[in-house]
């Protein structure tokens, strides 16, 4: 199987954020389900990669593996050059705490906690002190345009605001890789546009983003596209 890389050049190790080699995931049944066939690809620092595919194609499985939320059945996954396949659960937690940011379709906010609390939550397991946490969280909340809603419980926010909070919670961690799982799946058209604009801005600032989406139109905004079908990952040529 050939290694999927960006078309323009061969990257050095320092330019590569994530590299997978023969990564696969099969869920034990019965019956066993091969959600992700062995695949190889690299993601370079600063890339905005969209992964498209139909429902059940294996998109979220791939995202879970990239986010170390799940362990592969076979293959290797290097994140910032670290081989995650040999890690203990505790080490994987540490990698998640410091190097990966998540943005979910369902937001996954604590509705009874304030915007500030939810963004601070992104730093909770990094051992950052409370005052420093607050300072960094306030800065990121301002970045996503929610300064006026700092103390509002997340349960009362609109969908777009909730996703901004989720993005802020991810950004505050200063991760090497931001993984977005259908970030606009629960949003209307106008709000989708706002969130995509926000992600474009993050990309422009040099952040590495991998976005799962079933919407090809949204995927076209990414700098690179991977397609997944029946668990098989393929590179989508630039249009």
């Amino acid at each position: 199987m050939s290694l999927l890389v960006a078309e323009d050049s061969v990257a050095t190790d320092q330019q590569i954020v994530a590299r997978v080699e023969g990564l696969s995931r099969t869920f034990v049944g019965p019956p066993p389900v091969a959600a992700l066939q062995p695949c190889d690809f690299e993601i370079r620092r600063g890339e905005f990669v969209a992964v498209t595919g139909m429902s059940g194609s294996g998109k979220t499985t791939l995202l879970s593996l990239l986010g170390l939320l799940d362990a592969p059945t076979s293959g290797r996954y290097f994140l910032d050059g670290i081989d995650t396949a040999v890690m203990t659960d505790r080490q994987r937690s540490s990698v998640r705490a410091f190097r990966i940011g998540f943005v979910f379709q369902a937001f996954h906010l604590l509705g009874y906690r304030s915007v500030l609390d939810n963004v601070e939550l992104g730093l909770l397991y990094q051992g950052v002190g409370r005052s420093d946490r607050k300072k960094r969280a306030l800065a990121v909340i301002e970045d996503v345009g929610l300064s006026s809603r700092i103390n509002a419980p997340c349960a009362v926010l609109s969908g777009g605001e909730k996703q901004r909070v989720a993005i802020a919670r991810s950004l505050v961690r200063e991760p090497a890789l931001i993984l977005c799982d259908e970030p606009t799946g629960n949003l209307d058209k106008a709000t989708t546009s706002q969130i995509l604009g926000l992600l474009d801005g993050l990309h422009a600032r040099g952040l590495t983003i991998v976005m799962i989406t079933h919407d090809v139109a949204i995927a076209r905004r990414a700098s690179r596209r991977l397609s997944i079908s029946d668990g098989t990952v393929t590179e989508v040529p630039r249009e």
């Binding site: 939320l69 505790r90 705490a97 998540f102 990094q126 961690r173």
Partner: peptide, 16 residues
């Protein structure tokens, strides 16, 4: 469960 999953995604270990 989803909150616990979120905390794990944010870096919480099983012990945490």
């Amino acid at each position: 469960r989803s909150e616990i999953g979120l905390r794990r995604a944010l870096g919480a270990t099983k012990l945490h």
